[in-house]
C-alpha cells in the first residue's frame, strides 16, 4: 500500500488525502495515517514544486561538479559528504561509482557565484583532490517531466 501511495505522490503531491483515497479505492483515515507515518520515518522527505525558472525574471544557473577525494583515516566518504552538503548553495550530493567520487549539484544566481563557491569553498577543503565543473545550458526534461513544452490535447473533442 505504501508503495502505491508513493508512486502517486511522487508525480503529484498536491492531491488531497480524500482524492488519494478515492483513486486507490481505500479508506481516507488509513491513507492519512500512512502518509503521516512515512513523513515521520523520513520515507517522505519533503514536498517540492518543479519550476521552470527560465520563464521567470529570476536569473539562475545550475552546475554539476565532479569531485575526486582521498578519504583519510577516521574520515570516510560520509564525513566528507557532510562537509560539502552543509553549504546552502549545494542542492544535492551523490556518491558515485566510476571515475570520480562525488557528484555535487549547485544552484547559484550567477556563474561567478558558482565559480567562487568552487574556488573558495570546495577546492580548498582537505581531502578534495580535484574538481571539474559543468554548467547546465538548457533543461529539456527534469523529474520525468518535459520542460517548456506544454502538451495540448490534439484529439477530436468527441469520438465514438
Amino acid at each position: 500500500m505504501r508503495e502505491r501511495i508513493l508512486a502517486i505522490l511522487e508525480k503529484n503531491s498536491r492531491l488531497t488525502v480524500k482524492e488519494l483515497a478515492s483513486i486507490l479505492g481505500e479508506d481516507e483515515a488509513m491513507i492519512a495515517h500512512e502518509i503521516e507515518a512515512m513523513e515521520n520515518e523520513h520515507i517522505i522527505c519533503g514536498y517540492h514544486t518543479l519550476i521552470n525558472w527560465d520563464k521567470t525574471k529570476d536569473e539562475r544557473v545550475d552546475a554539476l561538479i565532479e569531485v575526486k577525494v582521498t578519504p583519510q583515516r577516521g574520515m570516510g566518504f560520509d564525513n566528507i559528504a557532510e562537509r560539502i552538503y552543509q553549504y546552502d548553495e549545494v542542492d544535492a550530493v551523490y556518491l558515485m561509482s566510476g571515475a570520480f567520487d562525488f557528484m555535487v549539484l549547485i544552484k547559484g544566481k550567477t556563474m561567478k557565484e558558482v565559480a567562487s563557491f568552487v574556488s573558495m569553498k570546495l577546492s580548498p577543503m582537505d581531502s578534495i583532490l580535484s574538481t571539474s565543473t559543468h554548467f547546465v545550458l538548457k533543461k529539456y526534461k527534469d523529474h520525468g517531466t518535459v520542460i517548456d513544452q506544454p502538451k495540448s490535447d490534439e484529439r477530436m473533442k468527441v469520438s465514438p
Binding site: 490535447d153 484529439r155 477530436m156 473533442k157 468527441v158 469520438s159 465514438p160
Partner: peptide, 9 residues
C-alpha cells in the same frame, strides 16, 4: 472541456 473522447490520452 470534453470528457467525450473514445481514444486513449
Amino acid at each position: 472541456i470534453s470528457l467525450g473522447v473514445g481514444e486513449p490520452d
